[in-house]
């Protein structure tokens, strides 16, 4: 019982260390190099490029789902792609985050009327951050990442406050 209050799930040690881990998670967000459509140019390629350089924040791309923490769904997901998106999400190790980038991934965008298109990637996988725009500028994506970091850090903090 006593041990539980020191290292148990709601103990201060656990929560503090969890907060530290969340600090690390929020500051090392490797995204998967997986561009579906137009948004990938802005959110994945320009983001790695010289002007926007997300590497400054510790946000870098990896080619493999197994190594990555964040999946940026950058583009229209249709029914063929939905299977792949789902599968890639399942391949990522926990904790994993999803950023839905652009109008298409959020809600189908200009193509929502076409029956082959999935209206919003949140119908397949859980989404953490939605970035509006068609396409969003790289700055928006940067802001999205910072929001995601805030969200990650807030989780442990909220439990600590409780």
């Amino acid at each position: 019982m006593a041990l539980d209050s020191v290292v148990g799930e709601n103990s201060i040690v656990f929560l503090k260390s969890e907060q530290f881990f969340d600090w690390a998670r929020g500051r090392s967000l490797w995204y998967m190099a997986f561009g579906i459509a137009c948004c990938s140019l802005e959110g994945l390629i320009a983001a790695a490029g010289p002007r926007f350089d997300f590497d400054r924040h510790g946000i870098f791309y990896r080619g493999v789902p197994r190594h990555s923490d964040v999946m940026i769904v950058a583009g229209t997901v249709n029914r063929k792609m939905a299977v792949i998106v789902k599968r890639l999400y399942e391949m990522m190790p926990e904790p994993r985050y999803v950023i839905s980038m652009g109008a298409c991934a959020n809600a189908g965008g200009p193509f929502r009327e076409y029956p082959n298109v999935v209206t919003g990637v949140d119908k397949i996988i859980p989404v953490d951050i939605y970035i509006p725009g068609c396409p969003p500028r790289p700055e928006s994506v940067q802001y999205g990442f910072l929001q995601l970091r805030k969200k990650i850090n807030d989780e442990a903090k909220a439990r600590l406050d409780k």
Binding site: F21, A24, R25, R27, S28, G58, D69, P93, E94, P95
Partner: peptide, 11 residues
């Protein structure tokens, strides 16, 4: 440090 800690606590 952040990268290594994150890798350590990943699934």
């Amino acid at each position: 440090l952040a990268d290594i800690v994150k890798l350590l606590v990943k699934e």
